[in-house]
């Protein structure tokens, strides 16, 4: 693979573009908005400058990366790509429309990957004539720091598509894991009880927010406690993930959200980004 297309130049899209360009690929970075595209390119340039200042990359590498990134507001050139990674808004309808366009634009051998974290890859694939070429490629934020990529096997994904995607993840220096297309994949699903039980323990008055976090870190050996982590992720985002998995499993009780989560969201206590969540953050 030489050219990777990336659709959507938001946080994830530009992060994946940065990682892939650093790994030596030519990148077509698409966004409908020229402003977002411009911001993404500026941000990547400033990340590259910082990388040079910190001695992590040479100035020659930085200029090579810059020359490999090509911003685009149209999908016309995407026919050259061997793989296209979609990283647009988490809306099934909009993603389906985008995949339909990509299906028309790209030759049959092009792999069409989605970076979705909460939608069904199988459902997105249904908008494509040949769903065997659609796969999930779930990067974690920020993509060049987080080593994990969940390669999601949609109901009709072919073995070739899957293996090529796994290979690409390795070429990007990531560690791929293969997972069937199920709500929350591996990480978001298995992490549910970490938050869910902590919230129930709090709700039942077993221990305080501070004590639960202290216990989980010192007795469990976790880097962060569940409430610290919910504040970091955003209590709104965490509730949205919980709700999505709960709804997609037709109300499986293990994923049922807790009223404390809803209260936090209603109160605008969304965590670090609002300076207040389970904890208060100065400045």
């Amino acid at each position: 693979m030489k050219t990777i297309g990336i659709v959507g130049a938001g946080i994830m899209g530009r992060g994946i573009a940065y990682l892939a360009a650093l790994s030596g690929f030519d990148i077509l970075l698409h966004d409908l908005s020229e402003d977002i595209l411009k911001q993404a390119m500026q941000r990547i340039s400033s990340d590259l400058r910082k990388g040079v200042e910190k001695g992590k990359i040479t100035s020659q590498q930085a200029s090579e990366v810059s020359s490999k990134l090509h911003p685009r507001t149209s999908l016309d050139d995407f026919k050259e790509c061997e793989i296209v990674i979609e990283a647009i808004i988490e809306s099934l309808e909009i993603k389906k429309e985008t995949f339909k366009k990509l299906d028309e634009m790209c030759p049959p051998q092009t792999i069409l990957a989605t970076n979705t974290s909460s939608l069904s890859v199988t459902s997105i694939a249904s908008s494509v004539g040949e769903p065997t070429r659609v796969v999930g490629m779930h990067f974690f934020n920020p993509p060049y720091v987080m080593k994990l990529v969940e390669v999601v096997h949609g109901h009709q994904t072919s073995e070739r598509t899957l293996q090529r995607t796994v290979e690409l993840a390795r070429q990007l220096g990531r560690t791929p894991v293969v997972v069937k297309d199920t709500p929350g994949f591996i990480v978001n699903r298995i992490a549910r009880p970490f938050y869910g039980e902590a919230l129930r323990l709090l709700g039942e008055g077993v221990a305080s927010v501070e004590d639960i976090d202290r216990i989980v870190k010192l007795e469990g050996g976790f880097t962060m406690g569940p409430f610290e982590l919910m504040d970091l992720i955003g209590t709104d985002v965490n509730l949205a993930v919980t709700k999505s998995i709960y709804e997609r499993t037709f109300g499986e009780p293990r994923y049922r959200p807790h009223i404390i989560q809803q209260t936090m969201v209603d109160a605008g206590l969304w965590g670090r980004k609002t300076k207040r969540g389970f904890y208060t953050y100065d400045s």
Partner: peptide
């Protein structure tokens, strides 16, 4: 439910959300 191998489940939780094990 056979969604992933035991090894991949462990790898995902350690790398994706920094679990100690």
């Amino acid at each position: 439910e056979n969604i992933a191998s035991p090894r991949d489940i462990d790898t995902a939780m350690k790398l994706g959300t920094n679990y100690p094990s």
